[in-house]
């Protein structure tokens, strides 16, 4: 049984790789045809719609309001989302320190230079 998280991921993968907006029906068919099979062969359209509305609430998906049935598209590309998430990780702010622990915190240009020398010398 696939979790909602898995379904969200499958739907987003499809929307990120498909240039044009898709309806819930098209998405369901695409999921059924997907080679990764395990997510759900026989998904109900209502399930797809639930997933889409969750994704819409999270600001990942937008609906074209004037079309019937509604067509959905991703708000920005996968790369942009990744860059945004990594920006959250890389930018130092005192209140972020407790959220996650990075292997190496931010390093100044001078410090980075010293580290490069250390690597070159070893």
């Amino acid at each position: 049984m696939a979790t909602l998280g898995d379904l969200e991921r499958t739907v987003m993968d499809l929307l990120w790789t498909t240039p044009e907006a898709m309806t819930a029906n098209e998405l369901r068919d695409a999921i059924a045809e997907a080679p990764s099979g395990e997510v759900g062969r026989e998904l109900a359209v209502t399930t797809v719609l639930t997933v889409l509305s969750r994704l819409e609430k999270k600001g990942l998906v937008e609906r074209e309001r004037d079309s019937r049935p509604h067509r959905y598209r991703s708000v920005t590309s996968r790369e942009d989302h990744t860059a945004e998430l990594m920006h959250e990780v890389l930018v130092t702010a005192p209140d972020r320190e407790a959220v996650l622990a990075r292997f190496i915190g931010s390093v100044s240009e001078a410090e980075a230079e010293t580290l490069r020398k250390l690597l070159g010398g070893s």
């Binding site: 942009d80 920006h87 890389l90 292997f103 915190g105 980075a112 580290l115 250390l118 690597l119």
Partner: peptide, 19 residues
């Protein structure tokens, strides 16, 4: 530590710029 540390600073600002 040295490799990650010396590469941790994005060498081209584009790496972080778009979003």
């Amino acid at each position: 530590i040295a490799i990650v540390g010396s590469g941790a600073l994005p060498s081209s600002p584009d790496a972080l710029d778009d979003p």
